[in-house]
């Protein structure tokens, strides 16, 4: 699948053209127009924001499938989603939908241009759904527009919404057990209140890399699906502990070491 696609404009130029902080006119783009993908895409065209690269039918089919799968997921849990906190509980499920459909190699992580284009061209409505609690609140219109811009355009590249989802699943995917760990955490996230978003922040930002993503899977399982659900502070300190143990070689550490020495569970 060709992912050498993106907007013709460089990131900084694109930001200048569409950022709500650069121009008041763009507030409407990321608040009102972003509620409807077609409208939003039309507005991009009006601003001469053009796409570069060959969009093949396979990618378009996948995009459609992802949107359909997310819609049925949201329908399934419609009654349970009351706040933006609840929406976050579905992050792991949505991550699986993106990852299982977009079978990219690891270097796709670095192709920010593609993810930015993908998010703004096909998933802007999902960005609004995920990050905005009341899109019609006129008092928050500027704030909301900035949030949608930050998550859709991604001033910080790793925050681009579709990339964020893909990375969550990539960091929890297992060569043999496939989505076993992701499913377990997704299940737990739906049932419990816990530091799931803090865990995601660590997956996205920190250097937790290890062979077959051992560290993220083991730590995630212990802290979020084990007999004891960790509190935010406990989770944060466990990650801090992992990073500070520089004289230990833990990238392939077994569950026992992580339980006793990193997550401090004595049993």
């Amino acid at each position: 699948m060709n992912i050498d696609i993106g907007f013709k404009l460089e990131k900084s130029e694109l930001a200048k053209s569409i950022s709500p902080t650069e121009n008041q006119v763009n507030i409407a783009l990321f608040s009102h127009d972003a509620l409807n993908q077609q409208k939003f895409s039309h507005q991009l065209k009006m601003r001469m924001i053009e796409t570069e690269g060959e969009i093949n039918s396979e990618l378009l089919e996948k995009v459609e499938k992802i949107n359909e799968e997310i819609n049925s997921l949201l329908k399934k849990y419609e009654g349970d989603i009351k706040s933006s906190r609840d929406k976050g509980k579905l992050d792991f499920d949505i991550a699986k939908i993106f990852h299982s459909n977009l079978n990219f190699s690891r270097s796709a992580i670095l192709n920010y241009r593609f993810w930015r284009w993908l998010t703004l061209s096909y998933f802007i409505e999902k960005v609004v759904w995920r990050w905005i609690s009341d899109p019609n609140d006129m008092n928050k219109i500027r704030k909301n527009a900035i949030t949608v811009f930050q998550r859709g355009f991604g001033e910080r590249d790793r925050r681009i919404d579709t990339l964020r989802y893909w990375v969550i699943a990539e960091r929890l995917w297992d060569r043999n057990k496939q989505y076993y760990y992701l499913d377990k955490i997704a299940e737990s996230a739906k049932k419990n209140e816990g530091p799931f978003q803090d865990f995601i922040n660590n997956l996205i930002d920190n250097n937790l890399y290890s062979p077959n993503e051992n560290v993220t899977k083991v730590m995630g399982s212990i802290m979020l699906t084990g007999e004891k659900l960790f509190k935010t502070k406990e989770l944060i300190f466990s990650f801090k502990r992992y990073h500070s143990y520089t004289n230990r070689f833990l990238i392939e550490g077994n569950e026992d070491i992580f339980r006793k020495e990193i997550c401090l569970i004595s049993r």
Binding site: R106, S107, N207, Y209, S210, P211, I251
Partner: peptide, 16 residues
């Protein structure tokens, strides 16, 4: 002795 390969940009660590 542990030997492993990694790519810092893609954060990929190959088998240990």
């Amino acid at each position: 002795l542990n030997i492993y390969l990694l790519c810092p940009d893609t954060k990929k660590i190959f088998d240990l």
